[in-house]
Design a protein around this nucleic acid. Structure first.
Lengths: 215, 215, 215, 215
DNA sequence: TATGAATGAGTGTTCATTCAT
DNA sequence: AATGAATGAACACTCATTCAT
């Protein structure tokens, strides 16, 4: 019984993940989900108190795991080198997104809409995210005079690297022939995100160096 | 009368831009638009052959301007230095997006959905975009052995830089306090996008250099 | 066109009157109405902004006519004999109810429910009704020492006489074989309501007289 | 355990009484009842074979007590004075209603709806009620030539006096500030119902008397 | 040319009930 | 004996669109 319950609930969630990712939350009807998941339409309201509750469940699930990662890395902030923490953190986040790709797609797309109720929930988590990254950023800055990029720019660019692969799966597939499961691409992608992070810390030095070399 | 017609049409488009940006295409009803624009509900179907036609109009308008920029810069591909072309092109694109921010928001969000009818139209333009950037990228690569990053990674990261500020206007505002019209932020943002581009071309050298220095 | 519009609207109202009266507001679905009226289901929302709006329309229509009668009679309150005014007023109200019997049925039944939104609207009118009857009652009392019945009792009993024939049409029909259109019954009913009113004014005298006679 | 069962059943009934009275039968869902009564939703179907069964239980309970009173008084019909029997009967019925006010409210409101399933059951009892009152009325008429009012009018007016205080509890409260438990009001109300009954029997005489007096 | 009336298809949600446990 | 899971049917309502005028 407990098994069956979980099975039905899980089936609904997985179907919702698929359909929300493809058609968007607004573009998916509860009837679509119930039909594809082969469950009664009332089941969705029964378990999640409506369509919105289902989205909420998905978003919160995703964000809980995300915040957990942030917290874990943030704990070691004064033991380890901040650069290293950032690098590890970003690596783990990219892995997390890769594993929960549907969640990431849905989450980032909903973040795109201003008026969605879910925004309120998101914002709580995202304020914490921002706080974590601010701490790390400040720690780096204190020990590294080379980091001149303002936090806002740094953060927006970092977030853009993290989100983009999950925001345009169809586009990546059709225009660049990158499959959502293409491990090779994601490894390379991660590698260059890390290089970008590295480059932030001695960008000026590099520039100086380059000038010297070119002279 | 011709004036009135244009005025009405324009009013509809501007209202649609506002509402599509805030609530998304799916989250906006023609009733909403007609009410806010203070025009009759049938007007939209009359002028744009339906809600979809209105979106199409907006997307195509945006993409036409975009492709024009791409084409213009591509023309000088064999006259000028490819690095420089890329830099100028990206700068102009960022300006274009800044000027047409609602269009950019709407366009990129719709690109997010797999099943949008407009996708077909978009894809035509996006194939051309890809082609243009491939050409530039190849030209750079030929003359610069330092560029080892695969095209796909380069292109995804570039696109992510271009799109992100327009994809999350609400988030940027509420979490990072960046207004959509914050010229200062966008200038700095552009600056660092350009630095990122620069960094791509001698990234390896930098790495080598760094190794040397650290030894 | 104007004719057609009115025709459709009227058809909806009349069907709603019939069904609300038989099955109650809650027991009638908009589908039932639309089906019986042979109009599209969306028409109801189009004209009345939803099922509740339809009920509201009906109730307000009924109450407007009712209040008009009250106001008209109240105007002559200091010209004519108050007893006479009450008598005439009650007579006209009974006629009004008889003519708008479906309205009366629906109105009084909805008044029965505590939580219906419409209550708010009703209450405005009903406060005015109470005020009118208070004025008349006070005027009578001032000139007639025989009227000892408290206003509240008087008013409740009067209202009960007015409403009952419309509250239980089915019961009256099935148990007492009184048809809703049975003019003979309603004439007699009215006659005895008037007698009841008369009896109020010299009830004490009568009691005294009776005592005398029985001695 | 038997105690618990009774307790649960009673809790359900009492909650149903409250909610049916406030929102009506149609306006109350079994979910509402089960939630408010803090019992499982299936309990209601389990004990009463569905929502309708619950209503039936309530109505029948109310009517059984009512009919019992009628029968008791009717037994003495040929021993005592019919006028007196009527007076006593009405007094006791008013008391019964006062004690079972929620039942009375629910019963009379449901009587209002033509299509209620329970109607059949109700009608059986109401036919007996009518029969009883016909007997009493005929007995009075035989011995009192003054009673000219037709039975139907008499009965409708009597019923209207009995039911009204329970049909509009909210209205009485909000417009006339009469609480459902206001014993003072109900005593006065009863008093004047009885006076009305008295007045029926010598109404003509009174009229004659009055004429004489005014001459 | 421009619009109000009207619509059929579809929306998310709630309903009372059933049934295996 | 009592319940949580699950359901099919119905709910009121909104949707984008059409069409006569």
């Amino acid at each position: 019984m407990e098994q069956d319950k979980l099975a039905t609930k899980k089936k609904v969630i997985e179907t919702a993940l698929t359909l929300f990712k493809i058609n968007g939350y607004q573009g998916t009807s509860v009837r679509d989900i119930s039909k594809k998941a082969n469950v009664n339409i009332a089941t969705i309201s029964y378990y999640f108190k409506g369509k919105q509750g289902l989205l909420e469940h998905i978003i919160v699930d995703f964000l809980e795991g995300y915040i957990e990662i942030l917290d874990k890395h943030c704990l070691s902030l004064y033991d380890k080198n901040a650069n290293l923490i950032l690098m590890n953190l970003v690596g783990e986040v990219l892995n997390y997104y890769f594993l929960k790709k549907e969640y990431a797609s849905i989450f980032y797309r909903e973040l795109t809409i201003d008026s969605v109720f879910i925004r309120e929930i998101m914002m709580t988590y995202l304020a914490r995210e921002r706080y974590t990254f601010t701490q790390i950023y400040d720690a780096i800055r204190m020990s590294n005079a080379k980091l001149t990029m303002p936090f806002s720019v740094f953060f927006v660019q970092l977030k853009s690297f993290l989100s983009t692969p999950y925001l345009f799966p169809g586009y990546l597939n059709e225009v660049l022939y990158i499959q959502q499961n293409d491990l090779y691409f994601f490894e390379r992608y991660k590698e260059y995100v890390e290089k970008w992070i590295e480059s932030l810390f001695d960008m000026d030095e590099r520039l100086v160096t380059r000038v010297e070399l070119s002279s």
